[in-house]
Design a protein around this nucleic acid. Structure first.
Lengths: 118, 118
DNA sequence: GGCACCTGTCAAAGAGAACTGACACATCTC
DNA sequence: GAGATGTGTCAGTTCTCTTTGACAGGTGCC
């Protein structure tokens, strides 16, 4: 099994992943979930010492990159709790991998689309 | 030699590397240097279609992360030219690697320390 | 009801990164 | 000298990201 190391992520995916991990808080979040296992937002925020809104945003970014996965569950006492856990990702960071991914970067046409306005 | 895959970068190093690669331009720069081999600033800027000052900044960031290396050389006709080339890096991106690196993140004490305030 | 816990979102402020244009310097060629 | 090439840096604008505080909702327990 396994699937080996380094699938072939598209340029945009790799970019999203690298950008997501290139942040102290998010790196710590992934580390906390890796070592402590699944955890829910409010608790994680308390443990990391950051605000809930902030953690919420970071988790969203990590989830968008596919590095963590969240699921809203129903606790035994009926309260809604959102648990997050890390996705077992594995990427090889080498010049070749970068070169290959870079070839498929979507040029994000940041066209300030003021299309015909009105 | 080599050192195989995945040395044990400190948290700050990993952070610098990920942040450096988490950018479209920089990812393309590494790709260009990987495929086209060493190249000098002005030429690279022309090929990538971006301004020299901008490329200069990105290269500096990549160099600070240890992903590329530059050397100011003397061309045959006496002109000074700065060549850049990629450093053969190799990192494994996994939850475990992240957890391990995250443990050594320098907490940048953003001290705003207004201790004792008044 | 009131309190404690969970969830989510928003707007506004703040910080940092990105980008541009202009400048100064050097060398070789015409 | 003028023009083309290369180097570097600086100041200022712009943009994106980050961060906070306040608000909305939900449930269970005393």
């Amino acid at each position: 099994m396994t699937g080996g190391t380094a699938p072939h992520p598209t340029g945009d995916e790799l970019l999203r992943i690298l950008a997501a991990l290139g942040n102290p808080h998010r790196l710590r979040i992934v580390a906390a979930l890796t070592e402590g296992g699944r955890n829910y937002v409010s608790r994680l925020a308390r443990e990391l010492g950051i605000g809930r809104p902030l953690l919420h945003m970071h988790l969203q970014r990590l989830e968008a990159a596919g590095l963590v996965a969240g699921s809203l569950e129903q606790a035994a006492d009926g309260k809604a709790v959102k648990y997050f856990e890390v996705t077992p990702f594995a990427f090889a960071l080498t010049p070749e991998a970068v070169a290959q991914a870079a070839a498929t970067i979507t040029q994000e046409e940041k066209e300030t689309v003021k299309e015909t306005a009105k």
